[in-house]
Amino acid sequence: MTTAPPEQEQATGEEYTETDDTQTEESPLLRVRNLEKSFGGITAVDGVSFDVAQGTMTGLIGPNGAGKSTTFDLITGVQKPDSGRVVFDGTDITGNRPYQNTNRGLVRTFQIARELDEMTVLENVMLAPQNQLGEALWRSVLPGARDGVVAQETELREEAWETLEFFEIDHLAEEYAGSLSGGQRKLLEMARVLMTDPDMVLLDEPLAGVNPSLEEKLLERLHELREEGYTFLLVEHDMDVIMNNCDPLIVMHQGQLLTAGSPAEVQNDERVLDAYFGEEVLG
């Protein structure tokens, strides 16, 4: 590790000791250390640590109940970890609220696409840009200040249309989001996330319910974006998709990190096969 994270004692207040500082690559964009979360008696995430390097499309896989979605929740602040640390771009963001993480450039999508049903597709997309002037009540109301709001909205409108075109849903721009099909919702969610101008996007099953041709299109877009410098962390169940598109892979099982490595390494790891095909895994 090159730079030490600023030691702000955040909400969780658990002791955090740097024990596994063996990796020597350049500082990764996202570092997760010893995350733990239990619900009642069930430990959903049990001491998970991993890194996500800048500009990668990292896959997070594991059988059902492995704790992938909870890990996403813990990273993005939807839930607070019982212990552990999340460091994004050199800053400790553990226990931050979701909006703070989004402001910093760490954005997520949801497993079940959560559209704002009674808002149009355009409204959905226009909601996303950060720091809009008109989000201040007084600026939206006062005559002089509103001109600035209108000017900014005019710019954002263009950006919104371009983003919709990029995902080929511009023909749906004025439909209510609630009337879109499952696949279209996924595209809209991607468009919306992109409009927040993120550095890193956490995608929770972005391809579930998406038909094969659309899936190909979406993956193509994701690769284009990755080449532009975006970083992705992706949870997905379709093994073909994961193996062909993600590198490296992180494998979780029963709340713990099982292994991490390139697709080839993971594919040949006995423990991964056991995890998926039901053998009891120890360690």
Binding site: P98, T102, R114, M119, Q130, T196
Partner: peptide, 13 residues
């Protein structure tokens, strides 16, 4: 109104 978590996930306090 529609989904507060989404608003929050899109960076709105």
């Amino acid at each position: 109104r529609e989904d507060e978590l989404v608003a929050s996930a899109l960076g709105k306090d």
